[in-house]
Design a protein around this nucleic acid. Structure first.
Lengths: 241, 241
DNA sequence: GAGTGGTCTAGACCACTAG
DNA sequence: TAGTGGTCTAGACCACTCC
């Protein structure tokens, strides 16, 4: 898939950790031997290990070794990693199937709030999209998406059924830069009750985000409302100093 | 300060960006010339640039150059990202006052679940702490904290009224390594209704986390339940590729 | 002292961008 | 086509851990 060596090494190591070949709390083989095994230089192995460290899978102790970190809060298939929030389509593995139901697909002028979030003029039209996301035909999230037509043109229903993000990346050749997110708990509204089948007392987990291209221009403002019992948000942060 | 070359280069470049020597949207000098200037190899310069990229200050475009991000200044100002969830005491500025009310402060043996999360034996006692957090005397969060006595000894009520984190950092001289978090929306329980004054239909935003020391040993397992109308979780993430 | 990870170099080739 | 960043190597020295 990826012909980049250090990523392939990282993936292979990840597989082994998940498979239990390298056990929790135990050290991985040392860098020199891994370099031999993968027919790579030590620097390349280090680059692979750095990926795993950032993802919270391992930690290294100078003079001692690289160990498998205990992932205390285990992920379920519904959970979302905050750093992979963009492009939720790919997240779910081979066993489950994520589909979308398009509830709304309009073009209109933005509100004042949307102008500010997307850094555009009131005269610049936007897409107004609502999609229901299902995992194995069970609704788990309701997604409100607003994107400037100027930046992301020619969206079709076809694209909405698949991944907007891969369209942006592969067709438009745009590069993501980052995102600002706000995570909140809220009471369910009429749409939640209707599409997510929430009861009056069922809370909703909302992720509001503005996603930027690498040059800092916002291209998406969205709100994703999750059923409270179908998926949490997972964060792994490493303190680097 | 730090005798590590790539960190020094990163700091110097950061200064120049903040000072406006390298302007927003404009390219930095190319890696070869930076390597010359800092008397370093290109790999070392790349390592420095990687730090700035992770912090959201610059981005690189293959075949073109390395550029200062548009929102570079904005991002550094809010350098307290979600990583800074630890130590909510300081999060609120000069205008507001965060206080704690101790609801429970016990020592006991851990449950099986706590053993697993904290990577300790059943015979190793833990602190069992519940604190109500107030902002200007208004309750906004209920915090359940579990810490192994073995690692964090001699906690007093005095410490609980202030910051546990500054005690760990300054008194015990321990270094944080990272954290694993899970953010969820939940229905309120009896404690929430009592202390956070939640109604039956008021959702609660819970952050469950295991916090690690630098060596990967967990020293805290906690659950913080927020009133849904008193504070969201903010995230800033940079996409690196 | 032996073994480990952390840092660093000089040089190489490739992929991509841009004029 | 020239210039740029992306990846990779082989080898080196150092700092640290553990015995």
């Amino acid at each position: 898939m990826d012909m980049i060596k250090y990523k392939e090494i990282a993936n292979e190591l990840k597989q082994r950790i998940l498979a239990g070949t390298y056990k929790i709390g135990e050290p991985l083989p040392d860098q020199i031997n891994m370099a031999k095994e993968f027919n790579a230089s030590r620097v390349t192995v280090q680059k692979a290990l750095q990926i795993l460290a950032v993802e919270g899978l391992v930690y290294s102790k100078q003079g001692s070794g690289t160990y498998v970190r205990r992932n205390a809060l285990q992920l379920t298939e519904y959970d979302t990693r905050a750093d992979e929030y963009m492009g939720s389509t790919k997240k779910f593995g081979a066993y489950s199937k994520v589909t979308s139901k398009i509830i709304k697909f309009d073009v209109r002028f933005p509100t004042d709030d949307e102008c500010e979030k997307l850094m555009i003029e009131k005269s610049s039209p936007i897409y107004d999209i609502i999609r229901l996301r299902l995992l194995d035909d069970e609704p788990f999230a309701l997604e409100y998406t607003y994107m400037p037509i100027e930046i992301i043109p020619n969206i079709t229903e076809e694209i909405l059924y698949h991944s907007i993000y891969s369209y942006i990346k592969e067709e438009l050749k745009l590069v993501f830069g980052g995102a600002n997110r706000r995570i909140k708990a809220r009471k369910p509204d009429a749409y939640d009750k209707n599409f997510l089948e929430c009861e009056e007392v069922d809370p909703v987990l909302e992720v509001e985000q503005v996603v930027y291209l690498e040059n800092g221009i916002p291209f998406e403002y969205s709100r994703t409302r999750h059923r409270y019992d179908k998926g949490d948000i997972i964060l792994t942060s490493i303190h680097n100093n």
